[in-house]
Simulated assay, not measured.
Amino acid sequence: MSKRAKIILAIVAILFAAVLVWFAKKNKKNVVEYETEKPFKTTIVKKTVATGKVVPLEEVEIKPQIAGIVDRILVEEGQVVKAGDLIATVRVVPNVEALNSANNEIKNAQLSYENAKTQFDRNRSLFEKGVISRQEFENSELSFNNAKQRLSNAKSNMDIVKRGTTAGLGNAANTNIRATSSGMIVEIPVKRGYQVIQSNSFNAGTTIATIADMNKMIFEGKVDESEVGKLVRGTKLQVSLGAIEDKKFPAILNFIAPKGTEEAGAVQFKIKADVTLDDSNFIRAGYSANADIVLEKKDDVLAIKEALLRFDKKTEKPYVEIKKEDGKFEKKELELGISDGVNIEVKSGVTTTDEIKIWNKASKDKKDEEKDN
């Protein structure tokens, strides 16, 4: 073989080797290095948040006992009143039919009275002359007194139809609207000149004012059906108000509705809790509020971050990968407990010395390569 042929063959061999090296480098994958974390001991608290509002424990609606027009309102919203205080007065607008009936009743009673009086005067004169007996005289006297009373009643009825009250009733006048309990006036939905309807067996009546004890407030909220079964009366809550920042009020759960209501496809159950107030903040009725409710709490339990978990596609069982001595990772199935959304309890499967793979955290070289590509 000539010298020239040898040189060409050597060049071809070198080029072939270079190509092989180039392909080897291109197809070679960097070894992915994963960071690890160890399980740890911690306290896990599982909570839920109930949205709602803060309202007075007791609210009393004051309603009139007679229909009419509001003549005067003597209080303002926010004013504190005592039971029996005058709140408003109502001016009666007479009903034409009732007025006509009362007027006819007076006329009939007047005729009966005059007739009974005539008979009584005549019988009294005859009794004094000894013409009639005492029994007959007393009967005529009784008839006269009854007629007199009926006339008085008819006139009183006329006063009630016209003015809503009559002489002799004193503080029981229907036109005077008084507070039936002590507290703060939180709402006056009517104004002077409004027409109101009395409360009776067939009608709730028009509300003149609402009185509430602002020193006794409760939280009213709703929880989902998936969590209501874990609630018990007496559970402690922390209530935060939208109107008061960085402040939480302690509360105790005292009511869980036995029946839920469907809202937007989910069943919600009403709850109530007694809120403990302080003197530094005035809580107004209707403040929007959120209540933090502890559903379950475990102290000093073995836990890992939920981000470390994976689930088997076939069995759907949770697992993690544990680093072995040779640097490789081994799959370990876990038995899990409660979670707070960040950390989750591990009942079995790992120990505090195990190193658990942190997913999707490759080495720097791998990231740089992916960036270049």
Results as ranks from 00 to 15, higher is better:
residue 140 S to T: 10
residue 165 T to L: 07
residue 156 S to I: 09
residue 242 G to A: 11
residue 194 Y to V: 00
residue 217 M to F: 08
residue 151 L to I: 02
residue 169 L to Q: 05
residue 151 L to F: 15
residue 149 Q to M: 09
residue 211 I to L: 11
residue 124 R to W: 02
residue 155 K to G: 04
residue 245 E to Y: 03
residue 189 P to A: 09
residue 148 K to F: 06
residue 124 R to S: 10
residue 176 N to I: 03
residue 218 I to A: 04
residue 144 F to G: 00
residue 236 K to D: 07
residue 155 K to R: 14
residue 191 K to H: 10
residue 234 G to H: 07
residue 174 N to A: 13
residue 147 A to M: 10
residue 143 S to P: 01
residue 152 S to C: 00
residue 180 T to C: 02
residue 236 K to I: 05
residue 174 N to V: 00
residue 207 T to Y: 11
residue 128 E to V: 05
residue 153 N to Y: 14
residue 174 N to F: 12
residue 165 T to K: 14
residue 163 R to L: 12
residue 141 E to M: 04
residue 123 N to Q: 04
residue 240 S to T: 15
residue 233 R to C: 01
residue 203 N to S: 08
residue 239 V to H: 06
residue 156 S to R: 12
residue 236 K to P: 00
residue 160 I to S: 02
residue 204 A to D: 10
residue 132 I to G: 04
residue 176 N to T: 03
residue 130 G to E: 05
residue 204 A to L: 11
residue 226 S to V: 12
residue 231 L to D: 02
residue 218 I to D: 01
residue 170 G to H: 05
residue 163 R to E: 06
residue 245 E to Q: 13
residue 169 L to W: 15
residue 167 A to N: 12
residue 223 V to E: 07
residue 238 Q to K: 14
residue 209 A to E: 05
residue 190 V to K: 07
residue 235 T to K: 08
residue 225 E to P: 00
residue 143 S to A: 14
residue 143 S to E: 08
residue 237 L to R: 06
residue 240 S to F: 01
residue 194 Y to P: 00
residue 205 G to D: 07
residue 124 R to V: 03
residue 158 M to A: 12
residue 190 V to G: 05
residue 163 R to N: 14
residue 159 D to Q: 14
residue 221 G to Y: 06
residue 153 N to R: 06
residue 184 M to H: 11
residue 128 E to Q: 13
residue 140 S to A: 10
residue 154 A to W: 08
residue 159 D to T: 10
residue 164 G to I: 10
residue 164 G to K: 06
residue 141 E to Q: 13
residue 226 S to Q: 12
residue 229 G to K: 12
residue 195 Q to P: 03
residue 193 G to V: 08
residue 139 N to Q: 10
residue 208 I to W: 09
residue 154 A to N: 06
residue 161 V to C: 03
residue 181 S to I: 03
residue 127 F to T: 02
residue 242 G to Y: 11
residue 147 A to P: 09
residue 127 F to L: 07
residue 127 F to E: 00
residue 163 R to Q: 11
residue 157 N to K: 09
residue 244 I to F: 14
residue 210 T to K: 15
residue 203 N to T: 12
residue 192 R to Y: 00
residue 150 R to A: 15
residue 164 G to W: 09
residue 133 S to I: 02
residue 226 S to C: 00
residue 130 G to S: 08
residue 137 F to A: 03
residue 145 N to Q: 14
residue 195 Q to T: 15
residue 125 S to H: 07
residue 148 K to Q: 13
residue 237 L to K: 05
residue 245 E to F: 10
residue 220 E to I: 15
residue 142 L to A: 11
residue 224 D to A: 13
residue 226 S to D: 13
residue 173 A to L: 01
residue 126 L to I: 01
residue 237 L to P: 10
residue 238 Q to F: 09
residue 193 G to T: 07
residue 243 A to G: 10
residue 226 S to E: 11
residue 156 S to N: 13
residue 196 V to F: 09
residue 223 V to G: 05
residue 146 N to P: 01
residue 223 V to R: 10
residue 231 L to F: 08
residue 235 T to I: 05
residue 140 S to K: 09
residue 187 E to D: 13
residue 159 D to R: 06
residue 150 R to L: 11
residue 211 I to V: 11
residue 155 K to L: 12
